[in-house]
Design a protein around this nucleic acid. Structure first.
Length: 706
RNA sequence: GCGCGAUUAGCUCAGUUGGUAGAGCAACUCAUUUACACUGAGAAGGUCGGGGGUUCAAGUCCCUCAUCGCGCACCA
C-alpha cells in the first residue's frame, strides 16, 4: 500500500489529538452500555469494572497533578476495557463548598465587594454561574488528557438527585442517632465567618511571649493572656503536692484583670504538673481542652471573644478590643500595673491552628452545630480494613487510615456559608433557651419554624460520591456497578476523603465502596517543589501537551513514579517521551512501507524467537498492570519498543524482507499498538487507523488485549 | 512529642517473596542521511547515608545512629 503522506514528517500531536478523541468519544464506547450493545460477543457476559473519578473542584484550571490522576485512571480503565470488562469511569465535579467560596470571595475582594451584606440567593446564583463556567474549562481539559470517561453519566454535586440523596442521608443518620446538635468547641475562622472541621485547619509555628502571672497563691502561665480576663477556675493535678492546701472545689478571692474576683480550684488529672507552673486557669468557650475539663466538672462557660475576634460585653471596659492584638497588650499592661506579672519568656515557640485557606488564627468558639458521631462509624471502617476488604496499593497508607479510624473525632458538618447543600433542618425560637429543632425536608406545621441557613461541609456530600454518582442505593446503576473496583486519588485525600467514602459506603450500602485504593503522590516542579499559585510554579498539562504532546506527558508522569511517591515534572522528561512517541511514529512508517494487509495472516503457532520475546514482555506488562505497578509496565514497554523491536527486530528483518518476516513484523507491531494504547492513546489510535478499518467502531480502544 | 516515608550513577528516579546493581536525562567516543538526527553503535560512571546483626548469600530482612521530607497531636 502507499504510505500515507502524514508519515513523511515527524509526528504532529496537535493535529491528531482532538481528531482521535472525537473519534473515540463519538463511538460511544466510553459508555459501558454501548460496549454491550455494539460488541455483545465480547462484553455482554462480562463483569463490570468501575472507578469513580475524584471530582476536581469546579473552580479553576487543572495542574500537572490532575493530569497524573486522570492518566493513571485512564490507563487502567483502557486496559480493563481491552481485556473485555464493562468499564465505567464515572466523571463528576464538586461544588467544593468552602474552597470555591474562598476563591469567589477573593474575586469579590478584587472588585471591591464583599459577601457579607449580599443577598444569600444572589450570592449563590453568582457562585453558581462562576462554577459552571469553570466546570466547562475543567471538563474540556480532562478530555484533552484523553480520559475515556463516560460523560453521559457526568455528575455534579449540586445536581438535584445528589442534593436530595445527601439530605436523605442526613435525615437517616439523625433517625439512627448518629447526628447531634450541640454547643461544642469548633474551629472558627473570623475572616471567613464559618466553622471548619479539624482537617480544614493547618498548624503554624509562632514565636510568642509566655507570661506567668500571680493569681492568689497560684502562679498561672499562659501564652494567651487575653483569654484570661473572665477565667474563674484554677486547675491543678490532684497529685501535685505543691497545692495540697486547696481541695477540689475550694474557693478564694484574688485580684485579677477586672478587679477582685472569686476563683474555684478544680483538680483534674489532664493537667501536666511538669508544664509551666502546673496550674492553669481555663477558658472553656475558647479552648477545646478547657472545654473538655469544664464539661467533665459541670463548670460555667462564657463567651469572651465574639465571632469577629473582639471582646464581648463580659470584658467590661475592654469590650470591643481586638483580642489577639490590642486586647492582649492591654491585659498584660493591667496585670503588670497591679504587680501580678511574675515572669515572661519572649522566645516561646508554640504551634497554633490557622485557617488552611487564609492562615487566620483559629479562635475556638462554642457553637451550636451539627455533629456526626464518629465512633461507631469509624469502628466498622476499621474492621473492614482489618478484614482485608481494602487493598491499599502502597501499604504505608493502611497504617495512616487505621490510625485515623482508631482515633475518631466527632465531625462538625455545619458551615456558615451559602455555597453548598442546604441542611434540611428547621428551628423554633432559635438562639434562645427554648430552642427546638426539627429535621426533615419540609417544615412542621406552624409558621414559627425557620429554615437552618447553614450548609453541609463539602466532604459530607463528596464522602457519599461513589453512591451518589450511581444514583443512590435503589437505582439500576447502583446494583450494576457497586461496589466499585478502584479508588485512585491523591495521597493528600487520605484524611479528607477516603475514610469518609468508606464510612458512608458501609453505612448506606453495607459494603465498602471500592476494593483497591491507589493513592498517588503529588506532581512537583522540576526542582522538587510543590506546585502552588503563590510560588508561580504551577505547570499546566495543557501547555505541556501543546509543546510536547499529551501522549508524551502521560508517559512522563507514569514512568519511574512508584505508587504513592511524589514525582517531579520537568520539560526535559516530557521531551524525552516526545521522542519516544515519534519513534513509534517512524516504526509505523517502516512497517507500513514494507508490509500490507496481505501480511496480516500470521500463524501464531509458528515458533519465532521475536514472537516469543514479545510474549514474555507482554506477560510482564500485564502482570504489572494487574498489580497497579504502572511505572514498571510503562518502562518495560519503552524498553521493548525502542531497544528490542526497533533496534533488533526491525534491523534484523530489514536485511531479509521475506514473506514470513513481513508477517512477523506486522503482527508484532499490531500487538505493540494494543499494549501501548492505554499509555499513549492518541498516537496509537491514529496509527491503528492505517492498519484497520475504523469506520465501523473497530477502534484500538476495544481491541482484545489477549 | 507520636507516627510515616526517604537516603542507590553528575541530576531525576526504578529495583515486586534475599541470589553477580538498572533506566531516562546530562557528559564522553564513533557512525553521517538511515524507517527514524526527535537517529544508530559503543564505552564510562555507584564500597546502594554510617555502624552493627541474621544468612551460604543483604540495596532488599532486623537493630541503631545521622540527615532530609511529610503527616498527626500539641500544653495552658
Amino acid at each position: 500500500m502507499s504510505l500515507p503522506e502524514k508519515y513523511k514528517k515527524p509526528y504532529e500531536s496537535k493535529d491528531v489529538e482532538s481528531v482521535v478523541y472525537k473519534r473515540e468519544l463519538n463511538s460511544g464506547l466510553f459508555n459501558p452500555d454501548m460496549l454491550v450493545q455494539k460488541f455483545p460477543k465480547k462484553y455482554a457476559d462480562s463483569k463490570t469494572w468501575t472507578s469513580i473519578t475524584p471530582p476536581p473542584n469546579a473552580n479553576g484550571r487543572l495542574h500537572a497533578g490532575h493530569a497524573l490522576d486522570v492518566t493513571l485512571k485512564d490507563i487502567i480503565g483502557r486496559y480493563k476495557r481491552m481485556q473485555g470488562l464493562q468499564v465505567l469511569l464515572l466523571p463528576g465535579s464538586d461544588h467544593a463548598g468552602f474552597e470555591t467560596q474562598v476563591v469567589y470571595e477573593k474575586k469579590l475582594e478584587k472588585e471591591g465587594r464583599s459577601r457579607f451584606g449580599m443577598d444569600r440567593a444572589e450570592l449563590y446564583k453568582e457562585i453558581y454561574d462562576f462554577t459552571h463556567v469553570n466546570k466547562e474549562t475543567v471538563t474540556s481539559e480532562i478530555k484533552r488528557i484523553g480520559a475515556s470517561y463516560d460523560w453521559s453519566r457526568d455528575t455534579f454535586t449540586l445536581d438535584a438527585k445528589v442534593v436530595s440523596g445527601v439530605q436523605k442521608t442526613f435525615i437517616k443518620m439523625h433517625e439512627d442517632g448518629l447526628i447531634y446538635r450541640g454547643k461544642r468547641d469548633c474551629n472558627w475562622c473570623s475572616k471567613h465567618q464559618t466553622s471548619l472541621s479539624d482537617v480544614e485547619t493547618d498548624k503554624k509555628e509562632v514565636v510568642t511571649t509566655f507570661y506567668t502571672f500571680k493569681l492568689g497563691d497560684f502562679n498561672i502561665a499562659t501564652s494567651r493572656p487575653e483569654t484570661k480576663i473572665t477565667d474563674k477556675y484554677v486547675v491543678v493535678h490532684p497529685d501535685d503536692n505543691r497545692y495540697t492546701s486547696y481541695k477540689h472545689g475550694d474557693t478564694f478571692e484574688a485580684e485579677w484583670v477586672l478587679g477582685k474576683s472569686t476563683f474555684t480550684v478544680i483538680k483534674d488529672d489532664s493537667i501536666d504538673p511538669e508544664f509551666g507552673t502546673g496550674a492553669m486557669t481555663i477558658t472553656p468557650w475558647h479552648s477545646g481542652i478547657d472545654f473538655a475539663i469544664a464539661k467533665k466538672h459541670g463548670l460555667d462557660m462564657v463567651q469572651l471573644i465574639d465571632d469577629y475576634g473582639k471582646f464581648t460585653d463580659v470584658a467590661g471596659e475592654l469590650k470591643g478590643l481586638k483580642a489577639t492584638t490590642v486586647g492582649r497588650a492591654k491585659v498584660v499592661e493591667i496585670l503588670s500595673e497591679k504587680g501580678l506579672l511574675v515572669d515572661k519568656d519572649e522566645n516561646y515557640k508554640t504551634i497554633v491552628p490557622v485557617c488552611y485557606k487564609c492562615e487566620t488564627l483559629i479562635e475556638p468558639q462554642l457553637k451550636d452545630q451539627w455533629f456526626v458521631k464518629m465512633e461507631s462509624l469509624a469502628e466498622i471502617a476499621l474492621q473492614a480494613s482489618q478484614d482485608g476488604k481494602l487493598n491499599f496499593i502502597s501499604d504505608q497508607y493502611r497504617k495512616t487510615f487505621e490510625h485515623w479510624m482508631k482515633n475518631p473525632i466527632d465531625w462538625n458538618i455545619s458551615r456558615q456559608i451559602v455555597w453548598g447543600i442546604s441542611i434540611p433542618a428547621w428551628f423554633k425560637n432559635k438562639g434562645t433557651d427554648t430552642e427546638e429543632f426539627y429535621i426533615g425536608n419540609t417544615a412542621p406545621k406552624g409558621n414559627e419554624w425557620i429554615k437552618d441557613e447553614d450548609t453541609f461541609d463539602t466532604w459530607f456530600s463528596s464522602g457519599q460520591w461513589p453512591i451518589a454518582t450511581l444514583g443512590f442505593t435503589d437505582s439500576d446503576d447502583f446494583n450494576r456497578f457497586y461496589p466499585t473496583q478502584l479508588m485512585e486519588t491523591g495521597r493528600d485525600l487520605i484524611f479528607k476523603w477516603v475514610p469518609r467514602m468508606v464510612i458512608f459506603g458501609l453505612y448506606l450500602a453495607r459494603e465498602v465502596p471500592f476494593k483497591d485504593i491507589y493513592l498517588h503522590g503529588m506532581a512537583l516542579d522540576s526542582k522538587g517543589q510543590k506546585m502552588s499559585k503563590s510560588k508561580g510554579n504551577v505547570m499546566s498539562p495543557i501547555d505541556l501537551a501543546d509543546e510536547f504532546g499529551m501522549d508524551a506527558l502521560r508517559m512522563a508522569l507514569i514512568v519511574g513514579n512508584a505508587p504513592g511517591n511524589d514525582i517531579p515534572v520537568s520539560n526535559e522528561k516530557v521531551k524525552a517521551y516526545k521522542k519516544f512517541v515519534n519513534k513509534l511514529w517512524n516504526i509505523a512508517r517502516f512497517v507500513l512501507e514494507n508490509t500490507n494487509e496481505e501480511d496480516d495472516n500470521f500463524d501464531t503457532t509458528i515458533d519465532n524467537i521475536h514472537v516469543e520475546n514479545f510474549k514474555k514482555v507482554k506477560y510482564e506488562i500485564t502482570k504489572n498492570l494487574d498489580n497497579y505497578q504502572l511505572h514498571l509496565a510503562s518502562e518495560e514497554l519503552y524498553q521493548y519498543v525502542w531497544h528490542e523491536y526497533a533496534d533488533v527486530v526491525i534491523e534484523e528483518i530489514k536485511k531479509d524482507l521475506s514473506s514470513e518476516n513481513k508477517k512477523v513484523l506486522r503482527y508484532l507491531f499490531k500487538q505493540i499498538l494494543i499494549v501501548t494504547h492505554p499509555f499513549m492513546p492518541f498516537v496509537t489510535e491514529e496509527i491503528w487507523s492505517d492498519f484497520a478499518d475504523v469506520s465501523k467502531d473497530n477502534l484500538l480502544l476495544v481491541q482484545d488485549w489477549e
